[in-house]
Design a protein around this nucleic acid. Structure first.
Length: 492
RNA sequence: CGGGAUGUAGCGUAGCCCGGUUAUCGCGCCUCGUUUGGGACGAGGAGGUCGCAAGUUCGAAUCUUGCCAUCCCGACCA
C-alpha cells in the first residue's frame, strides 16, 4: 500500500496541502486565493474560537459587529494604516449588473451604477471602528471601551496558501480605547498573553513572545507585540499580534474624551487579532505522515469508537454496548463519535481517523465485551493498549490530558532543539540553510542591516523577545555594537 | 505581478511531442454475494463540457491565442 501522504523531505508544501485536504479541514475554492472550510475544519475553528472568546470575556471584552465595507475616505484617514494595506485591497466600485446586450445570458457591470465613492472590503477594521468610536466616546466615564469582533477580512495577497494566507480569512479583531497610555500598553500586553496561553495550552504550540522591529510593525501602530511559533520544516510563523496604536487613530478620527480635569484628550488605542492561520500553525507544528495530530483540548472529535463485528447479530450487541460507553463518556464531557458505518471496514476507519487527527481511538469487539475491556489507541504515539471498562471515563480523561501534554512537550523539544545562537555570519547562514529554526543573533538596530540580512538570507527578525536579556555584542552583519540579541528566522 | 510547471470522472493518472472510430488505468461510487481486530474479495454497473473561451482544420484532449485556477521560485505580505 502506498503512503497516504507524501514525505515532507520530498515536498513539505505538498505534505501540508495533503494534510489540509485529506484531513477534511478545507479545500481549494473556485475563487482565487480563497478556501472552503469544511465542516470538520470549521468545528475545529469553532472550538478555538469558543476558547478564545471565553478568555476575551473574562478579561472584560464584549463582542460587536461592524460593516464589511469601508468608504475610501474613511479608509485613508489614518495615513500609515491606509498606505500599508493599499496594495492588497478589494474594492467595490459598482452596485448593479445588467444583461449584456451583445451576449445573451451574460451579465455586465452596469456603468450607470458606479458608486460615487468606492467601498473598500475591509482588510482590517480600524478605520470603520474608530470612525464609530468617535460617536461613542465623550467622557473618561466611557472608557475603557473593550470590544472584539469576529469577522472575515479580505487581503488580496499575491500568493496564497490554505489557512496560512488566503485572500479571505476568518479572524477576530479586538479594538480598545483607553484614557491613558499606560492602560493601553497593559491591554496590549494582556491580550498578547491571552494569545500565548491559548496557543500553548490549547493548541500545544510553544511560542516566543516578543515585539516587532519598526520595519515589521503593523501599519499605524506604535508597537507591535507578537507570538512566533516554529513549524516542523524550521520556518517560523507569526501566530498572533497585539498592537499598541498610541493616539494615531484617535487623532486620525478625532476621538477625544473629557478627562476628570475637564480637559479634552485623545484616547489611547490597541488592536489585536488572531486568524484561521492558527489552524495552519496547528497542522504544521504537530502532524506526521499518517495525517493530522490534533490536541485533545480543541479536537472536534476527541474519541472515536469503532465497532468490530461479524454479521448483524454481533453488530447489534456491540451497538448496544457502545451506546452505554458513549453515554458515559459524554456525561464526562468527552466529545465522542461512534462510527458503525457498515460500508467501511475497521482498518479503513483506523486510517481515516488517524488522517483526521482524532486523539484517541477505541476499538470494540465481541471478545472485548466478553473480557470487559476495550482496545485504546492514541494518535500521537500510535501506542495501543487494552484496558478494563471499569473506570473507563477517568482513564480516557487522563489519557487525553497525557496526549495534550506529550504533543506540547514534543513541540517544545523541537523548538528548543532548533533555537540556536549564531555569533558570526558564516554560522548564521549555515544554521539557516541547515535546519532553519529560531536563530538568536546580534543586530545593530538599524533598518538598513535588517533589510540587508533579509535580502541576503531571506531571514527576517521575527521579534525581540519580551524580557530580553541585555548582552553586549557585535552585529552579525555589520559588526557594529549591539546591546541585545534578536530572533531571526525564515518565515511563512 | 515576473519566471517555471500543471489542469483529463470524487481522487490519482495514461494519451498530447507526431490531430483520426467508442479517451486509458487504478482507487472511490452503485447493485448482489462473501466479508469485517490495520485501508477486504468476486461478479456486474454507473459516472467525462478532456479547466474555460476563441481560432486553425474535413476532423482537436492533442496545434495556436487569450483567460481562469493550482503548485514551485521570486516579488508581495502587520
Amino acid at each position: 500500500m502506498s503512503k497516504v501522504l507524501t514525505t515532507r523531505e520530498a515536498d513539505y508544501s505538498q505534505w501540508y496541502n495533503d494534510l489540509v485536504i485529506k484531513g477534511e479541514l478545507a479545500d481549494h475554492s473556485a475563487v482565487r486565493g480563497c478556501m472552503v472550510i469544511k465542516p470538520y475544519g470549521y468545528a475545529l475553528w469553532e472550538n478555538m474560537r469558543d476558547q478564545l472568546d471565553k478568555r476575551f470575556k473574562e478579561t472584560g471584552h464584549v463582542n460587536a459587529y461592524f460593516p464589511i465595507f469601508i468608504p475610501k475616505s474613511l479608509f485613508e484617514a489614518e495615513e500609515k494604516n491606509a498606505e500599508g494595506f493599499a496594495k492588497e485591497c478589494a474594492i467595490v466600485t459598482h452596485y448593479r449588473l445588467k444583461a449584456d446586450p451583445d451576449n445573451k445570458g451574460k451579465l455586465i457591470v452596469d456603468p450607470e451604477a458606479k458608486l460615487e465613492e468606492e467601498l473598500i472590503v475591509r482588510p482590517t477594521s480600524e478605520a470603520i471602528i474608530w470612525n464609530t468610536y468617535k460617536g461613542w466616546i465623550q467622557s473618561y466615564r466611557d472608557l475603557p471601551l473593550l470590544i472584539n469582533q469576529w469577522a472575515n477580512v479580505v487581503r488580496w495577497e499575491m500568493r496564497t496558501r490554505l489557512f496560512l494566507r488566503t485572500a479571505e480569512f476568518l479572524w477576530q479583531e479586538g479594538h480598545t480605547a483607553h484614557a491613558t497610555k499606560q492602560e493601553a500598553i497593559e491591554e496590549t500586553e494582556r491580550m498578547l498573553e491571552v494569545y500565548a496561553e491559548f496557543v500553548e495550552n490549547f493548541m500545544a504550540v510553544p511560542v516566543i513572545r516578543g515585539v516587532k522591529t519598526p520595519n515589521e510593525r503593523f501599519a499605524g501602530a506604535e508597537e507591535t507585540y507578537c507570538i512566533e511559533a516554529l513549524m516542523q520544516d524550521g520556518k517560523a510563523l507569526q501566530a498572533g499580534t497585539s498592537h499598541f496604536l498610541g493616539q494615531n487613530f484617535a487623532k486620525a478620527f478625532d476621538v477625544q474624551f473629557m478627562n476628570k480635569e475637564n480637559k479634552q484628550e485623545f484616547v489611547w488605542a490597541t488592536s489585536w487579532g488572531v486568524s484561521t492561520r492558527l489552524i495552519g500553525a496547528l497542522i504544521m507544528a504537530h502532524s506526521d505522515d499518517q495525517g493530522l495530530i490534533l490536541p485533545p483540548r480543541i479536537a472536534p472529535i476527541q474519541v472515536v469508537i469503532i465497532p468490530i463485528y461479524k454479521g448483524e447479530e454481533s453488530k447489534k450487541i456491540i451497538d448496544e454496548k457502545a451506546a452505554v460507553i458513549i453515554k458515559s463518556l459524554q456525561s464526562s464531557g468527552i466529545k465522542v463519535k461512534y462510527d458503525n458505518n457498515d460500508n467501511a471496514r475497521p482498518g479503513w476507519k483506523f486510517a481515516e481517523y488517524e488522517l483526521k487527527g482524532v486523539p484517541v481511538r477505541i476499538a470494540l469487539g465481541l471478545r472485548d465485551i466478553e473480557n470487559n475491556v476495550v482496545e485504546v489507541a492514541r494518535r500521537d504515539t500510535k501506542e495501543k493498549q487494552t484496558i478494563s471498562l471499569d473506570g473507563l471515563d477517568e482513564k480516557i480523561i487522563s489519557l487525553l490530558e497525557d496526549i495534550q501534554q506529550k504533543i506540547y512537550n514534543k513541540a517544545l523539544d523541537f523548538k528548543n532543539a532548533n533555537s540556536k545562537e549564531a555569533n558570526n555570519w558564516e554560522d548564521f547562514v549555515k544554521m539557516l540553510d541547515d535546519k532553519g529554526g529560531f536563530i538568536s543573533a546580534h543586530w545593530d538596530g538599524t533598518p538598513e542591516s535588517e533589510e540587508k540580512i533579509k535580502e541576503l538570507t531571506k531571514a527576517t527578525i521575527r521579534c525581540i523577545p519580551l524580557n530580553n536579556k541585555k548582552e553586549e555584542g557585535k552585529c552579525i552583519l555589520t559588526g557594529n555594537a549591539s546591546s541585545q540579541r534578536v530572533v531571526f528566522a525564515r518565515a511563512y
